Amino acid sequence: MQHIYLDHNASTPIDPAVAAAMIPFLADGFGNPSSGHWAAAPAKAALEKTRGQIAALLGCAMDEVVFTSGGSEANNLALKGVYFARRDVGDHIITTRVEHPAITAPCQFLERLGARITYLPVDGFGRIDPDDLIQAITPRTVLVSIMHANNEVGTIQPIEEWARIAREHGILFHSNAAQSVGKIARDVNGLGVDLLSIAGHKLYAPKGVGVLFVRRGVRLEPLLHGAGHESGRRAGTESALLAAGLGKACELAHDLSSMDRVRALRDYLWHELQERFGNRIALNGHPGHRLPNTLNVSFIGRVGAEILERLDGVAASTGSACHSGRVELSLVLEAMGVAPEVGMGAIRFSLGRGTTREEIASVGERLSAIL
């Protein structure tokens, strides 16, 4: 049975060029980059090279790049870092009901410490209403955090508009861009964000490394306190090995031409499913404003998890979970108002650079065989 990987929104394989960039640091460059001797020089040079590669991708300055252990830490640093640094200004954070748990869980933690969190509703496509954002702002609001693109349905938020609203009210704006970097344009100045999170393993880099863009002048209380690495914003000795991989991945991400091919394959898959199943399937998410690699569809009246169990050799994700014979919708689909009989059949197919037309055709045939 041929294995077909269509779960790139969960994690991507390490690109061969990324692996090649990391190999030298398995045997050398082991010194602590903060030390001042010869053994530290290669590691420090690798970190600064990577900082430059990331800054070039995001359109920011090198000193605005903060290394983290991944997207989750970057999100936690943004939310908690702003909250604790601006307690004298306010205690209110605005986010949405369709955020990744790496946003909602820190927000729930901060609520236990006295923070007030507003979770904005979304429409049937997964987008917020600008009026809801404006009405939610109070004199105590210190941060707005809205994801750039949704990990489940792929819907892209018009971050530029939401960031502009926050800026007009003197409020910092953060965006979780783990899913969008490497797939769509991501210039931080064009987006107007003050903070932006990246996860290496969503970008054909290794797991265990990420970045938080922090605009100059933005104060953060560190999550990790120690020897004052990353200009005092994140303690912990940086890994030249992981940084070298992330830097190469960011260099490769400049070229978005591969996404045109991926988008064509995604649309081919959607066409195949429509041809085979007609009105027995439904599209989840925005039909136009969504990631070029993401197709979230519901097989109406079916259970997505059960379909995936029978879809031998195909790696994908479902938007529903089975617990003791009961099917629960994901919080994203629930927030979008997707009906239970539709949402319980949701499956997310997320394509990647290596996906082929033959693989897409095979998935269509396998689905027809089991349904």
Rank of each mutant, 00 (worst) to 15 (best):
D123H: 04
V214M: 09
A149L: 06
I134C: 06
N150H: 12
I103G: 02
I117D: 02
S175R: 11
G208Q: 07
W162I: 00
P106N: 08
M147H: 14
P206Q: 14
R167E: 14
G217E: 09
M147I: 10
L143I: 05
D187Q: 10
W162V: 00
H148F: 15
I171F: 11
D123T: 01
H92C: 10
R219S: 13
T118D: 10
K202C: 01
H169G: 03
A185C: 05
G217I: 03
F213V: 06
T96E: 05
I94A: 08
V153P: 01
L203I: 11
A102I: 08
V193M: 07
I184R: 03
R167M: 12
Q157M: 13
I198V: 14
G217N: 08
P158G: 00
A102Q: 12
V193F: 06
A163V: 06
D194C: 13
S197W: 04
V153F: 10
Q108H: 15
P206R: 09
C107W: 04
F173G: 02
V193D: 03
V211W: 05
T104Q: 13
I128Q: 04
A105L: 07
L196Y: 06
V144Q: 02
L172T: 09
G90R: 02
T118F: 04
S175V: 11
V153A: 10
V211Y: 13
D129T: 01
R127C: 07
A136D: 01
G126W: 01
A149Q: 10
V218E: 10
I198S: 01
R186L: 08
K207S: 15
R216Q: 15
H148A: 11
E99V: 15
H92R: 13
A199Y: 08
S197C: 10
R164Y: 06
S145E: 12
P130Q: 04
A199R: 01
P121Y: 00
H100Q: 09
R116Q: 13
G200V: 08
V144W: 00
G192T: 08
V181A: 10
G190E: 15
L172E: 10
P101K: 05
R87A: 07
A199V: 01
V209Y: 07
A136I: 12
I156K: 05
T155C: 01
I103C: 14
S175H: 06
F173Q: 02
G154T: 06
H100L: 10
V98F: 07
V218F: 08
N189C: 02
I171W: 03
K183P: 01
I198C: 04
Q179A: 15
F213Y: 15
I117V: 15
T155D: 04
A166E: 07
S180F: 09
D132V: 03
T104F: 06
F109G: 10
